[in-house]
Computed example of a mutant assay.
Amino acid sequence: MESQLQRGVILEIVKVHARAEELLHLPDDGFRYELVRGELRQMNPAGNVHGRIAMSFSWRLARHVEENRLGEVYAAETGFKLTTNPDTVRAPDVAFISRKRLDEVGETEGFWPGAPDLAVEVVSPGDTYTEVEEKVSDWLDAGTKLVIILNPRKKTATVHRTQGNVSILGVDDVLDCGDVVVGFKVGVREVFG
């Protein structure tokens, strides 16, 4: 009964264009959601490969960031409020915010107000090309400096620095994030294991 009630609440929010505050207070129904221009979108739980690759990248990044006191690394559950009226709240698989920006904004309740400096998305089997490109555009348009798309099937890292500035790296290449995360480099092969 409670699950049907929760779903009813969620469906009602979708009909009326949801706001970030409503997303933040949704009842837990076991799913994750993003808010895209007021539309609530359900995200399926990550599969084995997706989760392993996201963790492989994030622990390497987090270790480097912590050792060098560069800022903070965030997990997939973290929402970033990218736009208002209509609201867009996205949650990348991995995110990084620089120490400078953290100090400027201070401690924040709820969703981070703005885009991370780095957003990493791992392509899931059910993701369409259009969905992935929409996420990349949303991140870049909101001010993310570096968006990385990790594709487990192709074992590639597609690096977006601005709209149209794209490079595709294969397993023998090194992913250099030094312009956004000072000194961070990782072999693409290492990420995919």
Score class of each variant (00 low, 15 high):
residue 98 S to A: 07
residue 65 V to F: 07
residue 41 R to C: 10
residue 28 D to R: 07
residue 47 G to R: 14
residue 76 A to Y: 10
residue 155 K to V: 08
residue 23 L to K: 11
residue 137 S to Y: 02
residue 155 K to F: 14
residue 114 G to V: 04
residue 161 R to I: 00
residue 8 G to W: 08
residue 180 V to Q: 02
residue 77 E to K: 15
residue 78 T to G: 07
residue 173 D to E: 02
residue 140 L to V: 02
residue 68 N to R: 15
residue 29 D to T: 07
residue 93 D to G: 05
residue 113 P to K: 11
residue 169 L to N: 00
residue 25 H to G: 08
residue 77 E to W: 14
residue 92 P to D: 14
residue 193 G to K: 08
residue 109 E to I: 04
residue 171 V to D: 05
residue 78 T to Q: 13
residue 89 V to S: 07
residue 86 P to V: 04
residue 10 I to E: 04
residue 113 P to Y: 14
residue 160 H to A: 02
residue 23 L to A: 06
residue 54 A to C: 10
residue 187 G to H: 11
residue 56 S to H: 08
residue 45 P to Y: 10
residue 78 T to C: 11
residue 191 V to A: 03
residue 44 N to E: 12
residue 137 S to I: 01
residue 187 G to F: 11
residue 107 E to T: 14
residue 124 S to N: 05
residue 146 L to G: 01
residue 172 D to I: 06
residue 2 E to R: 13
residue 87 D to I: 08
residue 107 E to A: 13
residue 111 F to K: 03
residue 129 Y to P: 00
residue 75 A to C: 10
residue 177 C to T: 04
residue 9 V to L: 09
residue 133 E to C: 02
residue 29 D to L: 05
residue 110 G to K: 09
residue 5 L to N: 09
residue 156 T to D: 02
residue 82 L to N: 01
residue 166 V to N: 02
residue 186 V to I: 15
residue 162 T to K: 00
residue 178 G to R: 11
residue 31 F to W: 13
residue 70 L to P: 03
residue 122 V to Q: 00
residue 186 V to C: 14
residue 96 F to D: 01
residue 8 G to T: 12
residue 153 R to L: 05
residue 101 R to G: 05
residue 98 S to C: 00
residue 159 V to K: 00
residue 142 A to P: 05
residue 113 P to A: 06
residue 96 F to L: 05
residue 140 L to P: 01
residue 138 D to W: 03
residue 141 D to L: 05
residue 181 V to N: 07
residue 49 V to Y: 12
residue 96 F to G: 01
residue 60 R to Y: 12
residue 86 P to H: 05
residue 22 E to K: 10
residue 169 L to K: 01
residue 17 H to R: 15
residue 78 T to N: 12
residue 27 P to T: 07
residue 52 R to T: 04
residue 111 F to I: 14
residue 58 S to W: 03
residue 110 G to C: 08
residue 11 L to K: 14
residue 85 N to V: 14
residue 155 K to M: 02
residue 105 V to P: 05
residue 111 F to D: 04
residue 188 V to W: 00
residue 4 Q to C: 12
residue 144 T to Y: 01
residue 16 V to R: 11
residue 39 E to P: 11
residue 109 E to Y: 10
